[in-house]
Write a protein that binds this DNA or RNA. Structure first.
Lengths: 285, 285
DNA sequence: CGACTTGTTGAGAATTGTCAAGATGCGTGG
DNA sequence: CCACGCATCTTGACAATTCTCAACAAGTCG
């Protein structure tokens, strides 16, 4: 964690050399360098389920017993390469995935195209849908190199039967997801132009901050124009023009699949961003 | 119930007199007549909570004890006039509302306008958001004359503590809501034109059918162009043109706040509608 | 009757969508 | 180390759709 913080701070220095393009430390592969930050590696975290514990603890305090239960669970971590749809519409997964590292999106594909409906980050359990509803109604894909831990449905159901409070925390998480979807309906239905592109960026930054994976005013995200186009419902060409406009205002920089937030307050304003819908009580705004 | 069915069937006869406009029984106020259907009055239902029981039972069987618990609850029914926002963003309601009659929508208002994010019908409990998250992040409004029954949060929490299965059914309901939101993101972000207007109509018809409040191919909904504009993110003028197009194809008729579905299969096709996202197992498609 | 809501129409402005071509930078494999 | 393929980003021109404005018709409700 603290390592990453320093990484970010030093990167800011390079940024100041040029407002619009990212410069890299000489002698290091640029992308390798960036990706170390963007992948949200878990340097200081001993047990990977700590992300989940931290998150649930924010939603409502966990008892010592519940905490021990989660900590003791042996996680089997799987790596997923960028772009891979590791859960597909129509499937009936027998396990849920806890995101341990990297960024993930839910999407639906139709004849007319593809729409990303949400992003998910370390600490999110992304498959509660299938746990209670059975069949998946959407795909889940990796946006960058991702690591997930599989938790069998049976185990989760057992946990929740034994500790009703735990089930309620997961339910609460589902309600927050629903609130985020509502905001996305607003974003694609109500807003246009720059706000529409800026909003998902603001959301990601805010959510990453909550779990301690991003700082403002400086922050890096693995977002390509294609990803943003699928998330906003705009054609790529427009995302490009919106990003160029946001760049020219000094709010962001983007380069080769990496988007950098330079002016957090300005970006929030451009997006008409109000974090209330994230229901993040522990957020230092 | 059966009264309504007959009502609908007889109305269909009037419809056949003219493909595009609704005719009414002579001697009766036209709107009063229609509204009797559109309001979904509960003729044959003795206890109003039956809607909720029926719905939960479809999500997963209720035990006899749980069923008795729900049936025994004394409902205090409140009438809400059309257009009234009876829950507002920012509030912290101390009770949840079970819709007993009428149609309700969730919406969010911003400086740039208003966006409807979902519809809700008899049997839906619309305030589980505030039950676990506290603060409302959206408004809830009546689309036509609505009756709701208030259930104090404390009672609901007590029910769920005593009957974990009940809590799981509510959670499941929340997950279906989330799936519907995902589809709405698709509708406003991915689709354009006629499909975008036709889709929410298809959704409403399907959901009403599940609870036995609508039949195909003939069905009536209390939807104005303004409502559809807010739900689709299109300007009213466009909704008008889309509806005229759908009318000219013989798929629907609309008149003075009442929308009639004439050709269910054709409408589904126009909307690229696939009911899978509603997760309605009991649906006779 | 008169205020109000709902639906309709036309015309022009602005935005969004499409197509096509090319520039840049990274990773791979020779 | 270089060449190549690939993904990403950029630009321009044009078509299609969406948005806005404005005025008016029709129906409901008090």
């Amino acid at each position: 964690m603290y390592g990453m913080l320093n990484e970010c701070k030093s990167r800011k220095r390079f940024h100041s050399w040029s407002n619009l393009h990212i410069r890299f430390e000489p002698g290091l592969s640029a992308l390798h360098n960036i990706r170390a930050v963007v992948n949200y590696t878990l340097d200081g975290i001993s047990s990977m389920i700590d992300w989940l514990i931290r998150k649930l603890d924010q939603l409502g305090p966990l008892s010592e017993e519940e905490r021990r239960l989660l900590e003791a669970f042996p996680l089997e971590v799987r790596a997923i390469s960028p772009g891979h749809d590791f859960i597909r519409e129509g499937e009936r997964p027998s396990e849920c995935y806890l995101i341990v590292e990297g960024l993930v999106c839910r999407s639906k594909s139709k004849a007319v195209g593809r729409q990303i409906v949400s992003f998910h980050l370390p600490g999110d359990v992304i498959d509660l849908t299938s746990l209670l509803l059975g069949q998946m109604d959407h795909n889940v894909s990796a946006l960058n190199p991702v690591k997930v831990a599989a938790i069998p449905n049976a185990i989760l159901l057992d946990w929740m039967a034994r500790y009703p409070n735990l089930g309620r925390l997961f339910w609460r998480d589902t309600l927050i997801d629903a609130s985020i979807y509502r905001q996305w309906v607003l974003n694609v239905g109500l807003y246009s132009g720059y706000a529409r592109v800026a909003h998902p960026i603001c959301e990601l930054v805010t959510r990453l901050r909550v779990v301690g994976l991003a700082q403002v005013p400086f922050c890096i995200l693995p977002l390509t124009e294609v990803t943003l186009a699928d998330a906003t419902g705009l054609p790529i060409v427009h995302v490009n023009r919106a990003l160029l406009e946001l760049s020219s205002l000094g709010l962001i920089a983007h380069h080769n699949g990496v988007l950098t937030v330079l002016d957090w307050e300005g970006l929030k304003q451009a997006a008409d961003f109000d974090p209330a819908y994230l229901h993040q009580f522990a957020l230092a705004a």
